[in-house]
Design a protein around this nucleic acid. Structure first.
Lengths: 248, 248
DNA sequence: CGGGGGGTTGATCTCCTTCAATCAACGTGG
DNA sequence: CCACGTTGATTGAAGGAGATCAACCCCCCG
């Protein structure tokens, strides 16, 4: 359960835990070699800002381990998370000079960065990268649209249940396709981060989590360790149909 | 002002009003010829459903003229719009067998459809299509994220102002880059569609539009014709900084 | 003339926010 | 070792923005 994230950069692409899921997933050996020449690792501590919105970006890259958030902020300080970056997720937009969002490390973070200019050039030459990036972007677009339903139409309780089910599902697929029985996982977000994700206040998040606990939908050990005794029940609370809207 | 949309399909790709902005934008003459063999036009009347979520999709395509909406619906009937499809926008996801969303024609609609299988094959062979689709998908993702801020953190009044400013801006860029002076445009959506877009009820939409009118932010002729005397004022009401968060 | 779709407006209710107090865990320095 | 501050979280009380329920209008069309 622990140690699902490395804390150090892998030595070579062969060692890389995200080798088969990141933007480089489809690359051949020679293409990896090319990428290797323009890549470098960067480490961030929990809480550190990776990029400020509006700053010039001279790199793009992948999350190797740890979790980061993508957020937008209004002048008066209201903030909305618009992306949750997990290992293998891609950061940055080829062709864009400045960052559009704040990127903040939620946990300790390792990123595999590519210098932007040469990466863009490689994209034009080797279709494997562009193909994979298209696939990943389409997936993100689907996730964003799913989230628009959550933000626009779901109640606070449903929002929390939706977030929990998403984290739970991701955890299950990560850890060798859910053995049935109660699922357990660690919430990677503070109450405030959850509120920013769901368009709520942190007080409401806290209240609804307590309510779900009281109603037996989830169990808690400490603040972060969640157990879901009945996943279908959680999905029902999220307002999803029980097959979970699988799109594949 | 009128007749910005054709009501009939173009005869050839050369005539096509979206030739330089759609998924085929980067194609060479020979590639267009190839596309021509797998394409066909379809017409829909206002209100008609183009695709039902969950239905098998044997085509993908572009909006040639008219407007369509992408919506998600929960079992109890709550619906959230997750995309507004304007001329040149792409419909469908290569690689996916079934539709993930309802697509409904808001106005009379002409679509340029490609049979899915051969289109997917062309995508693998000609990078121009995949490149353009990636670009378009990244733009859509940015739009979706902008919308997540609107849905999650803005007030009803700000939501309406945001929607109006988006429609206004699109109209301005379409019609030869805003001559300054009051902008005018036609709202392409009913109050109910706006509500579905913004995560509100149609009553709230109506009230807030009335309020913006009373406060002089907009003027109305009939229900649909909007005049914006001071665009910066509208942006301020939307909670955007006056440069409009340009990302380029 | 009747009917229906789209829109506006009013009254009431409710869910979530706001403001505020309290708590537990943790680290730090005297 | 204990007082103190900090950070994340919980809980309570009060208020408000928007939902809900409902009446009504306008206009087009059969």
């Amino acid at each position: 359960m622990l140690n699902e994230t490395l804390t150090a950069a892998p030595r070579t692409c062969g060692d890389c835990p995200i080798r088969h899921r990141a933007v480089c997933a489809r690359c051949e050996a020679d293409e990896l070699e090319q990428l290797d020449k323009i890549k470098y690792y960067r480490n961030f501590e929990a809480g550190q800002t990776v990029i400020w919105s509006g700053d010039p970006m001279d790199f793009v890259g992948s999350v190797v381990s740890g979790i980061a958030t993508l957020t937008q902020t209004m002048e008066d300080g209201r903030t909305q998370m618009v992306g949750l970056l997990l290992p293998s997720d891609f950061v940055g937009r080829p062709g864009r000079g400045a960052a559009a969002y704040d990127v903040v490390a939620t946990t300790d973070l390792v990123m595999c960065c590519f210098r932007k200019k040469p990466f863009e050039q490689m994209m034009n030459e080797t279709p494997h990268i562009a193909q994979r990036l298209l696939e990943m972007t389409l997936d993100e677009l689907d996730a964003a649209r799913e989230w628009m339903l959550v933000l626009g139409r779901k109640t606070a309780r449903e929002k929390i249940a939706s977030l929990l089910s998403i984290v739970a599902r991701r955890n299950a697929t990560l850890h060798l396709g859910m053995r049935d029985g109660p699922m357990q996982f660690v919430l990677p977000l503070t109450r405030e981060a959850m509120a920013d994700y769901l368009g709520l206040t942190l007080e409401t998040v806290s209240r609804q989590i307590s309510a779900l606990k009281k109603d037996g939908v989830i169990r808690l050990e400490g603040k972060r360790n969640v157990t879901v005794p009945d996943f279908d029940r959680l999905l029902a609370e999220a307002g999803d149909d029980s097959d979970g809207g699988m799109l594949v």
